[in-house]
């Protein structure tokens, strides 16, 4: 555990909590892509199956349980409790164009050809592109609420901090995981355009326009 890893995890947690609270307090999921949230729920489920097979630390277990729980809670709020406010017409990204290639790639390029390892690889690849339905939705409607941009910023910052974590671990521990690093770079790059807009336009203005 180093400072980049810890702040990355906390940033990820902050993003998840911000989104849950935003939907809960406003009693609306307008502007939020339910498809992205389903993809994140799939990501956490397929990655954290090792909760059943191995114990790493109390921190690790608690965070995994919180991430999974919050992901399903978010999906529940969007598709059940506040379904009436869900903007399905604008959430029109074709997720099969992500899930099918990602599934194929995880079978082809992985650390070990075993079910658990393939599912873990699938989750890493899927996470790197899971935000695309959300970004697509914002580009389609042309605006996002300020709180939604804070969510996206924390979510992007989390993977960027993980990149620094991997540089740190490579130098001080000789640790590196090529699959996670390549997917993490892709994931961070997808946020670059958004980071730029967030800093230059989204900081104080409201509502946020692209």
């Amino acid at each position: 555990m180093n400072v980049f890893r810890l702040t990355g995890d906390l940033s990820h947690l902050a993003a998840i909590i911000i989104l849950l609270l935003k939907i809960w307090k406003s009693r609306s999921c307008a502007g939020i892509s339910g498809k992205s949230q389903i993809l994140f729920a799939i990501v956490f489920t397929t990655r954290y199956l090792d909760l059943l097979t191995s114990f790493i630390s109390l921190y690790n277990t608690c965070m995994k349980v919180i991430y999974i729980g919050c992901a399903y809670a978010t999906v529940y709020l969007i598709y059940a409790k506040f379904r009436a406010t869900y903007d399905g017409n604008h959430d029109s990204f074709r997720v099969e164009f992500l899930v099918v290639p990602v599934g194929g790639l995880s079978v082809l390029i992985n650390h070990d050809f075993s079910p658990l390892e393939i599912l873990w690889t699938f989750s890493i690849y899927l996470e790197s592109v899971a935000i695309l339905p959300q970004l697509f939705m914002i580009s389609k409607t042309g605006e996002a609420e300020t709180i939604t941009t804070h969510y996206l910023f924390c979510l992007g910052l989390y993977r960027a901090l993980y990149l620094f974590n991997w540089i740190w671990r490579f130098y001080f521990e000789g640790f590196f995981d090529m699959i996670a690093i390549v997917a993490g770079v892709v994931q961070t790059v997808l946020y670059c355009d958004f980071f730029y807009l967030y800093v230059t336009k989204g900081w104080f203005s409201r509502p946020y326009r692209l």
Binding site: S57, M63, N110, H111, D112, W120, Y162, F175, M178, I179
Partner: peptide, 10 residues
């Protein structure tokens, strides 16, 4: 196949 690293990250 690549070497499988320890999965201690989230």
């Amino acid at each position: 196949c690549l070497r499988t690293p320890v999965k201690d990250e989230l």
